[in-house]
Design a protein around this nucleic acid. Structure first.
Length: 514
RNA sequence: GCGAGUUUAGCUCAGUGGUAGAGCACUCCCCUUUUAAGGGAUAGGUCCUGGGUUCGAAUCCCAGAACUCGCACCA
């Protein structure tokens, strides 16, 4: 508390003795030192180089809107205070492009209005600095809305040069590693991440309106259940046990349904999967899972459509979107087609007519789909679907009625014991949602887990683990229940026309630089 | 994990086995109502790293690193 946060000697000395580790070339050091010297000069003029507060009267966008009808060359006497980052300096600082999160505004400095001291101090302002300026609103003869300043101050000196103004920052690695630079330079990056926030807010809002209770369940789990995936392993020191970062919240959310905390719960948060990284996969990703008592998977299809179309309308203002040159129409209702029918239409092979695993494998091989010798009817069906059908499902569609053996948490289909009541919603070929009529029969659930354990013995280390406590919960009785999971990052990619998942995650996982 | 590609100034990019280049940014001078770029001058380099071939390597070869894309795995 007694320490002055920014004494001149501290600032200058630290800079001279500790050059920025990331910019060690002579040229970079020169640029940086020049700016530190300017900061020093500013301070010697009696200013706090890192002040505490600035009274900003308007955002740039507010002023652009408010003075939209101000004609070229017209000056007002309206006094405003603006603040933001200097993105361009023209004519020795007479014209400054000031950027704030809402947009750009020009700051105009003229000796008629600025004291000789501040006129001189204008030379201390660099591109990249955060400044605040107070003055009157005018529109230049060329049509640029400007603040004609009577006073300005440096609110945050930039010691490092920004990327070039014309091409900006395009290096993909730098954009992800130094996201702050990307956000300063690229409007598109700002738009995408702002839209992400709005999309998530709209989902929460809709679910809360529908009486869903937002809950939190463990990220650290002793059994990584609820999905088929490789978990991250970590260690709790005082308990001296290994724990897993969750791959899904599913089993805990259904415990809450058993407990009756609410008939409708949801969780919107991170999952972690220790698998490959790709344009569609980040090790930590955001999932929304919800459970609704007394509902089935048909209700979940309705709800999926409502969520996606509501979000699209409220955030984008339309349900017709462009994704990488492909027009996608999100307007409800979306077709619902069974996996078996999809495969039949695409390949002519009717898996419903196939009785044995052997026949199923033969049918797959005949379609040039690779199958393992131990693959059952269901696995063969799924593999054929993935190879032959999946990529063709560009417009939104619910693929229904999955094979029982690949869906150990879904309730048996009411009309066909080989199937379960599960669907996946596909948009642009991607799985956007995955949902079931939840399996609530504890005896059946135990058998499913046991079948999964057998898969594990076959070498499938992503098969589900036995969760005795979960079965115990079911034995106390769970209402019929619909469950739905939506991959939030993928949905945001589609809605923001982002081809890479890293574009929709502020700080995606990267390997540290050596 | 496998394959292909990329890596040169702060940024965006050229580059021939023979002294390292441009534009923007930076610094200085001139200039005062401009819109990526007014005029002029200066300065700025671990050519990703480590080996090798060669009289000589940013360039050719080998190994490694990070990134990108595809495949595998998955959402």
């Amino acid at each position: 508390m007694t320490q002055k946060p920014s004494s001149p000697s501290a600032t200058t000395e630290a800079a001279k003795t500790q050059p920025d580790a990331q910019h060690t070339s002579e040229h970079a050091a020169q640029i940086r030192q020049t700016r530190i010297d300017k900061l020093d000069s500013w301070q010697k003029l009696g200013h706090n180089p890192y002040p505490y507060h600035f009274e900003k009267s308007h955002s740039n966008a507010e002023l652009q809107t408010k003075y939209d009808h101000l004609e070229n060359g017209v000056e007002t006497e309206d006094i405003v205070s603006v603040a933001g980052r200097v993105m361009a300096l023209r004519n020795s600082g007479m014209f400054i492009d000031l950027q704030d999160p809402t947009g750009k505004l020009q700051v105009f400095s003229h000796k008629e209005n600025l004291s000789p001291e501040l006129m001189e101090a204008l030379k201390l302002v660099d591109i990249g600095d955060i400044i605040g300026a107070t003055g009157t609103i005018r529109r230049t003869p060329r049509g640029e809305l400007s603040v004609k300043v009577t006073h300005f101050e440096i609110l945050g000196k930039s010691l490092l040069p920004l990327p070039e103004k014309y091409h900006g920052l395009t290096d993909i690695e730098t954009r992800y590693r130094q996201r702050y630079l990307d956000l300063i330079m690229n409007q598109e990056s700002r738009n995408t991440l702002v839209k992400r926030s709005r999309i998530i807010m709209e989902i929460r809002k809709l679910l809360m309106e529908k009486d869903f209770l937002e809950v939190e369940t463990p990220m650290l789990q002793t059994i990584a259940g609820g999905a088929a995936a490789k978990p991250f392993i970590t260690h709790h020191n005082t308990l001296d046990i290994d724990m897993y970062l969750r791959i899904a919240p599913e089993l805990f959310l259904k415990r809450l349904i058993v407990g009756g905390i609410s008939e409708r719960v949801f969780e919107l948060n991170r999952n972690f999967r220790n698998e490959g990284i790709s344009p569609k996969h980040n090790p930590e990703f955001t999932m929304m899972e919800l459970y609704q008592a007394y509902a089935d998977y048909n209700d979940m299809m309705d709800l999926t459509e409502e969520i996606v179309t509501t979000v699209a309308k409220n955030v984008l203002g339309t349900t017709t979107i462009d994704f990488q040159g492909t027009e996608i129409n999100l307007a409800s209702p979306w077709p619902r087609k069974s996996m078996i029918d999809c495969v039949k239409e695409e390949t002519g092979v009717d898996f419903a007519a196939i009785q044995t695993d052997e026949e199923a494998r033969a049918a797959a091989k005949k379609l040039h789909v690779e199958v393992e010798d131990y693959d059952t009817w269901g696995y063969a069906l799924e593999k054929v679907f993935e190879v032959k059908v999946e990529h063709k499902l560009i417009q939104p569609i619910h693929i229904t009625d999955y094979p029982r053996e690949i869906s150990p948490l879904a309730k048996a289909h009411r009309d066909n014991p080989r199937l379960v009541e599960r669907f996946e919603t596909r948009v642009y070929g991607w799985e956007i949602a995955n949902a079931f009529s939840e399996l609530s029969d504890p005896l059946d659930q135990r058998q499913r887990f046991e079948a999964q354990m057998a898969q594990r013995d076959h070498g499938d280390d992503e098969a589900h683990q036995m969760d005795e406590d979960y079965i115990t919960a079911l034995e106390y009785g769970m209402p019929p229940c619909g469950g739905l999971g939506i991959g939030i990052d993928r949905l945001i990619m589609i809605l923001t026309n982002s081809p890479n998942i890293r574009d929709v995650i502020a700080f995606p996982t990267l390997k540290p630089k050596a």
